[in-house]
Design a protein around this nucleic acid. Structure first.
Lengths: 156, 156
DNA sequence: GATACTTCCTTGCGTCCGCAAGTATTACCC
DNA sequence: GGGTAATACTTGCGGACGCAAGGAAGTATC
């Protein structure tokens, strides 16, 4: 017999779900309105900008973005059409394609990033004290540590 | 000039995004595999079960589910097809339709709920101490309090 | 070194969902 | 009270994404 959620558990869970929807919805709307880019596309550009040579294997990028292979293919299609990313076959392994941030892509990202960071602060970080932030970061670390071990389906 | 995120802020934000994707992905997969229902459909049934007379106006339900009007229309379409929810015109206001949980819907919900609660525990709650839970709940309350006041686009 | 198995990416197809437009009903205002 | 505005829901349409299948390349086994 499964125990139902008590008040604190319910508040933590519902709060998590609602804040997640609220914050990502708000960021999505702001980014789309101001620069015509989705948070998903922004995420790809941001990831690429952080790694050596600004290039990643498609499969690694898909995992980092929580996206299926086909989902990433089409997302990169869009970014390629806009000239922000370029495809490049890997010389190591000819199965893999690398997604490479173009210089236009980097410029664009640098133009967009301040608004995104500002949004993350306004909607999320600034609402919390420094110690709450530390608590959150460590709580999330604890949760992620359990992903591999308790999953029944794919962890995603 | 916008300040970039420091280490703690980055950990809190990235952790939030990744945990959000990971947990909801895991729950989605489990619910779908075991009972053939999405978390979205489950959410509708759960909400309806919590309110008086197990009925809600479509627009209120849409807001509660973070869904557009059209999105809810089609979600309810699906639940009606499966006999879990019934539509009923409101007598107060003839513009509004009420979504009503059927008795089949309630039975189904009661069959599914234990697995869902169990999943929420396994993937989320059980990873945190009691005091972490309280911290989270209050942090989320603080964040939601700011939604109306700092939004630039729609909050959700 | 040929055959089977795995990995990586793409494409066809179906689903979900948001936006815009349309209809019906209610609220506001002179 | 009639006209305008606002609200509630639905439908057409298009975009995004996951699954399954397919092709191409690497890996393992004999």
């Amino acid at each position: 017999m499964t125990e139902w959620l008590d008040e604190v558990e319910m508040a933590a869970w519902r709060g998590f779900v609602d804040v997640s929807a609220g914050v990502s919805g708000a960021l999505e709307a702001e980014l789309l309105e101001s620069h015509g880019i989705t948070t998903g596309d922004y995420g790809v550009l941001a990831r690429l900008s952080e790694v050596d040579d600004a290039r990643m294997r498609m499969c690694d990028l898909a995992a980092a973005m929580h996206l299926s292979p086909s989902g990433l293919t089409r997302r990169v299609d869009g970014l390629v059409r806009r000239g922000l990313v370029r495809r490049e076959p890997s010389s190591d392994d000819r199965r893999v394609m690398l997604a490479v941030l173009t210089s236009d892509g980097r410029s664009f990202l640098e133009a967009v990033a301040p608004l995104h960071v500002d949004g993350v602060r306004r909607h999320f970080l600034s609402r919390l004290s420094r110690s709450q932030l530390r608590e959150l970061a460590s709580a999330f670390r604890d949760i992620q540590a359990g992903f591999g071990s308790v999953a029944r389906g794919r962890p995603a």
